[in-house]
Design a protein around this nucleic acid. Structure first.
Lengths: 348, 348
DNA sequence: TTGTAAGCGTTATCAC
DNA sequence: GTGATAACGCTTACAA
């Protein structure tokens, strides 16, 4: 303070207030200021007060980059998700981010669009920030990504699908089980001729697992399956219409249809309605995803809700446990396998 | 390589391959490896090849934390958005993130839930990472946030609303204009008794600006306005129903209704339908937002689509221009004021 | 074009 | 409980 105003800064610096300046103002050592932020309980009240005052007076904001370099662990967590704006992952991201930031961690986010190369470059960039942890979606990665994830000394969580046989921590649900749930429900409702409509996107392997769950239940019940595959890569909404038109005329006509997702189901719902079908009496319809529009349709859509928010929150809690930011035996669910919830509305 | 395997690492380090190790392997100086990554054109082809080989062989991933500290500018951009999972901002985030990462920048994301305190803590945390730029939503900030943003030596962009009178760079649209557009369209369709239904969320000031646009147009046309305010804080879907029920019985009954957003409009649509109204003949309905369900309703919803994706992309381009990552006179739109697009469907 | 030296702001280590 | 000192891995400044 009594020093001459530094004539010209020796080199660079962002021109920000530093830890050392705070230390000088509070008349303590730099390390005490550091402790004030990181282990306050190790600083005596008198010092604490002086530091507090100096921090306030100078408007000091800790430089997390420098801290990250010195400690080799930044309070940053990277997440790679297929997409941000779809109806599926947004809640996961939000819950993940909120849970993290509640504990002082920040979210570094990138989307992969189901493209392994994009995922790889995101993971590479994230690793450069020496993140405290990394979260990736699904278990499909390029070999280079697998290698980076394995070699990086960073906790990795794979979300969405639950793959107990894989090494990284898994937080998700079983798609197969979704098919089982949907089909069982329709059986309970008294339906016997139950069809399944696949997704038009050929890369949607999860949807095929749901179909397999459906097939299994029908086989157990001794009933004949009926799987419809829309034209590849046609828009989901259109694919649903297409499927509905085809199945309405099938012989024998199905009493109920499970669609690979709510988009398909919505397309089908409208097609059926425009064709004069009385839903759900003429045909019961189920979707998957519980997209926001599901209860705005007429009839509203019976569907299965994936635990999107739960996955995001639990993944964050696991990460925090791993980092020691929260107790390992706290009030966190033990299991990483979550369940989809059957949402019964009007369409089935 | 011929050295003994380091007995125990001197102190900490993440155990990762460093720039120096690459330099040693390639038999060049560290700074040349640094240049290889940052200004490749300044490195001669022979060196470049040797470095390339060493990088590959060692699987080197640059430590961006160290780089950020040394250069006082990390390739990271912070964004604070009200929410991630709503239908509104997701596209903005996605476009922003994608545009950034295409140029080697990463997105640090946090949500504020329209809460100034949460925004403040997010901004503070972000500043600690010495971001290359900061993006915040709207122009409502706490005094402390304003101060941090002003003092931080970082480009700041405010998105969503367009407020030319404010100092930070603005990228967005005019809500007032949205009300004007909607009302003009309905007038063109021959409607004369046009109502406006406000949002039930009292904090939604933007919706009030849209209402004012509506009022202005009606006044110009010499027509009587009719504004309905649903019970405060009731769920938007319910609020829409409530408004519809009330306005159906109004004397004289409106010929058309503009809703503050698509959620309200959807609630109204269903309420009208269940009451046996023939839409849009008995009543034309318009929303705002073009939420994903808008074209799945029956009748599908005529609405105004905010330039969500465009805002995200343009904000990113502005940031990149400011950082010199792309040419300032490139193929980027000159104007930061974007427009909402009228999406005519069946309901009006 | 390439290299040397210093320093970015913090925390780990060890001594008091 | 508190402090001096040396890293952390990279880039700026300057020299060759």
């Amino acid at each position: 303070m009594s020093q001459a105003k530094e004539p010209t800064r020796k080199r660079r610096s962002a021109g920000r207030v530093t830890l050392n300046e705070v230390a000088r103002a509070a008349d303590v050592s730099a390390i005490s200021v550091s402790r004030y932020f990181n282990q306050p309980e190790q600083v005596s009240p008198p010092l604490r007060e002086r530091i507090e005052a100096a921090v306030q007076a100078l408007g000091y904001v800790p430089n997390l980059v420098a801290g990250g370099l010195a400690s080799a662990r930044g309070r940053i967590v990277g997440m790679v998700i297929p997409n941000i704006s779809g109806p599926i992952f947004a809640h996961t991201i939000e819950a993940f981010s909120d849970t993290l930031s509640r504990h002082g961690y920040q979210l570094l986010l990138a989307s992969s669009y189901f493209d392994e190369a994009q995922e790889e470059s995101a993971v590479r960039a994230f690793l450069g920030w020496s993140p405290a942890a990394l979260v990736v979606t699904s278990h499909f990665h390029s070999p280079a990504t697998e290698k980076m994830l394995a070699e990086a000394d960073v906790p990795v969580v794979e979300i969405w699908d639950y793959r107990p046989e894989r090494a990284p921590l898994q937080v998700g649900f079983l798609h197969h089980q979704v098919g089982v749930q949907a089909c069982r429900y329709l059986l309970e409702q008294g339906h016997r001729r139950i069809a399944f409509v696949q997704n038009s996107a050929p890369g949607d392997f999860s949807a095929l697992e749901r179909r397999d769950g459906y097939l299994e239940v029908l086989a157990e019940a001794g009933l004949e399956p009926c799987v419809f595959a829309p034209a590849a890569d046609c828009a989901p909404f259109e694919a649903g219409k297409q499927a509905m038109v085809a199945l309405m005329q099938a012989e024998p006509r199905p009493q109920a249809i499970i669609f690979a997702n709510d988009n398909l189901a919505a397309g089908a719902l409208l097609a059926g309605q425009r064709a004069g079908l009385k839903l759900p009496d003429d045909m019961a319809i189920m979707g998957f995803g519980d997209y926001p529009f599901a209860d705005m349709l007429l009839p509203s859509l019976t569907t299965l809700r994936p635990p999107s928010r739960e996955i995001g929150e639990l993944a964050a809690l696991r990460v925090l446990q791993h980092l020691g930011a929260i107790a390992a035996d706290g009030e966190v669910p033990r299991l990483n396998l979550l369940a989809c919830q059957l949402v019964v509305r009007e369409s089935a």
